[in-house]
Simulated assay, not measured.
Amino acid sequence: MNPEDITPLNGKGRFIGVGVGPGDPELITLKALRLIRSAQVVSYLANGEGSSQARNIACEAFKDVADSQHEIAIVMPMSTDRTLANQAYDRGAEEIARQLDEGRDVVFLCEGDPLFFGSFAYLLERLEGAYPCQVIPGVSSINAASSALNHPLTILKESFAVVSGRHSAEQIDTALLQHDSVVIMKAGRARPRILTALRKTNRMRDAKYLEYIGRDNERIVRDVATLEEKAGPYFSLFVVTKSERSSR
Rank of each mutant, 00 (worst) to 15 (best):
S243G: 13
T154Y: 04
I220C: 15
L100F: 01
V239R: 05
S141N: 06
A231I: 04
A187E: 13
I172N: 10
V139L: 12
G232S: 12
F235I: 09
A231K: 09
L33K: 14
E71K: 07
R215E: 01
A88T: 00
K242N: 11
K242E: 11
D206R: 00
P132Y: 07
P233R: 07
V183K: 02
L33C: 08
L195D: 04
G129Y: 05
R248V: 12
H167F: 12
Y44V: 12
G118E: 09
D5I: 03
V162S: 13
F235K: 14
L33S: 04
R245S: 06
E229R: 08
F120I: 08
V42L: 03
I16V: 00
G188N: 13
A121R: 07
I16C: 03
Y234R: 00
A58F: 02
S168I: 14
A97K: 10
N56Y: 02
F62S: 15
G232Y: 05
R205I: 04
H179V: 11
F15A: 05
V163S: 10
E218Q: 13
R191W: 01
T241A: 07
R37K: 06
M185P: 10
G118V: 05
G23N: 09
E4M: 12
P132N: 10
E170W: 03
N150F: 14
Q53M: 06
T7A: 07
M76Y: 04
F117A: 08
L227K: 05
V221M: 13
R199I: 10
A145Q: 09
S119T: 11
P25I: 09
S147G: 15
L35K: 13
D206C: 14
V106G: 02
S79L: 04
Q178R: 12
G21P: 04
Y131T: 01
P8T: 02
G50Q: 11
I194W: 03
R248D: 10
L35Y: 09
G19R: 00
V221R: 09
I57C: 11
R199G: 12
N143H: 09
R248C: 13
E71H: 06
E71G: 06
S181R: 02
R37G: 06
V18E: 13
K230F: 05
